[in-house]
């Protein structure tokens, strides 16, 4: 059995969390939050629905400002926020592949990925670090439109960003293709689920995760507890069983039976139970806020509300 990537023990995890604000630099005026009662807290940058478009030079500074305004120090950042292409142009959504002009966009994105110097990513990492922030995961939706060369470059990009690994909305068939890449680059890919229960290639059930986890020790889970509940699965049971392979969870609240996203505490997702389980069992699982319910208020205001909810249940 090959050794997997280093997964922190709970004691090491606690030390990292405690040290992170120091690493952020004493010069930072605002105290950034990395944990609540030793539960690692971060956010998925998808939560920011009102950002400038992909490739806009204001995009990264806006994410940084938003994170600092909210006061959260760590994130999982979407490739669509790093690359000058929306995620739809790199092939994840099958429906988007049918759009006119998609093939040309996809080729342009590929050429860019293969030619961009790594200091492009290092510069973004520096901007985050200068603001006291950390990119922990690079969210790239690997799919069959990637070439092997492109997969290799994407792993190099994640390293240049300072990410420990990937979170990925991907499919089981793509996970099989990724095995030699995770092992060569010694970097984990955490599978992110949705709730499509019809397509057996999708990550949506405990069994779909287990299929990938058995392929390589470098495969982990990013459990989206809201989508998991929308697919009528039990996130508490999953975390109890797979806490050692779960890198982070996406915290959102959805109703069962493919129900809608709701403000935290108003759906069927046992957010409080999950967070308290992670706290009480001292599982080294990061909890990343993902705001996707409807509101007239800004994303920043709503992520603050999500954070307040987590503070209350973890108090």
């Amino acid at each position: 059995m090959k050794q997997g990537p280093t997964i922190l023990t709970r004691r090491e995890f606690g030390k990292v969390l405690a040290a992170a604000p120091l690493a952020a630099g004493a010069a930072q005026q605002q105290r950034l939050l990395y944990s609540i009662n030793e539960v690692g807290i971060g956010l998925e940058t998808f939560s920011f629905h009102d950002l400038p478009p992909a490739g806009d030079p204001r995009l990264i500074p806006t994410i940084i400002n938003n994170m600092r305004e909210i006061g959260i120090g760590e994130c999982e950042i979407m490739s669509g926020h790093i690359e000058p292409w929306p995620t739809s142009s790199t092939g994840w959504w099958v429906q988007s592949r049918r759009a006119p002009g998609f093939q040309q966009l996809r080729e342009d994105a590929r050429r860019w990925r293969l030619s961009v110097p790594m200091n492009y990513y290092a510069n973004i990492r520096r901007q985050f670090e200068d603001a006291g922030l950390r990119i922990y995961l690079y969210n790239v939706n690997f799919n069959e439109t990637f070439t092997d060369e492109e997969r290799d470059k994407t792993f190099e990009a994640a390293r240049a960003l300072g990410a420990e690994g990937f979170s990925s909305s991907t499919v089981i068939s793509e996970a099989r293709r990724l095995v030699p890449f995770v092992e060569r680059h010694k970097m984990f890919v955490a599978m992110h689920n949705h709730n499509n229960l019809v397509d057996p290639d999708q990550f949506a059930t405990p069994e779909s995760f287990e299929t990938a986890l058995a392929m390589s020790p470098y495969f982990k889970a990013t459990l989206d507890i809201g989508h998991f509940v929308a697919g009528n699965n039990d996130p508490v049971a999953f975390i109890r069983k797979h806490h050692d392979r779960t890198v982070n969870i996406h915290v959102r609240d959805r109703k069962r039976n493919n129900g809608p996203n709701r403000p935290f505490g108003q759906g069927d997702t046992p957010i409080a139970e999950v967070l308290r389980l992670i706290r009480d069992q001292k599982y080294p699982i990061r909890c990343y806020l993902e705001y996707e319910y409807g509101s007239f208020r800004s994303s920043v205001d709503e992520v603050k509300a999500c954070l307040d909810y987590c503070r209350r249940v973890l108090a």
Binding site: N195, N196, Q202
Partner: peptide
Amino acid sequence: AGKPNLQTAMPSYP
């Protein structure tokens, strides 16, 4: 009814 069969399912709003 939503569209549960989509890759990223459209939620239902019953």
